[in-house]
């Protein structure tokens, strides 16, 4: 085997291999992870987060604007503290509300942001004050049954 032909083949192999990696990176995947430099973090407290996990998307009007980066239990107020990392391109008013939603009936959970009307915007390390907990299916069914029972109960 001639050395130059061999080098040529290996060179081609490496180029095609790297092209495949680039294809996977750019065309198949996307840099969903928001970079630290182009983002800011806000915290929201929930009484119940249901099945929310880190890396869950944060959406506003259905568009992904960030990710959940941390979920922890705040032992002082006995609530869940969820840290959201939001893209710097999207600024939200200070009185924005956060709700834990479910995509589809049993799909994955995400955080929905609904913008308020304040002229002051959220900054890094701010806290979202208005939150709405995850809907827990058991509670929902319980309420439904309880409501029905009350309705049907003889007065």
């Amino acid at each position: 085997m001639n050395k130059t032909i061999l080098d040529l083949w290996v060179g081609l192999f490496v180029i095609v291999g790297i092209a495949a990696l680039l294809f996977l990176t750019l065309k198949v995947g996307s840099m969903n992870t928001v970079n630290n430099s182009d983002s800011y973090e806000v915290v929201a407290r929930f009484e119940n987060i249901g099945g929310l996990k880190t890396r869950a998307p944060v959406k506003s009007a259905g568009v992904v604007v960030g990710r959940v980066v941390d979920v922890r239990f705040d032992n002082e107020v006995y609530e869940a503290a969820v840290t959201l990392r939001l893209d710097k391109r999207y600024a939200f008013p200070k009185d924005t509300s956060a709700a834990i939603m479910t995509s589809g009936l049993l799909g994955e959970q995400y955080i929905g942001l609904e913008a308020g009307g304040d002229s002051v915007k959220l900054k890094d390390k701010d806290r979202i004050l208005i939150t709405q907990d995850a809907v827990v299916l058991e509670n929902l069914i319980g309420q439904f049954l309880y409501g029905n029972a009350q309705e049907g109960a003889p007065k």
């Binding site: 990176t25 065309k27 198949v28 996307s30 840099m31």
Partner: peptide, 15 residues
Amino acid sequence: MQSAVDFEQDILNGV
């Protein structure tokens, strides 16, 4: 495909 496949989580781990 693009919205679901994450670079770090999926592609990098595969590599």
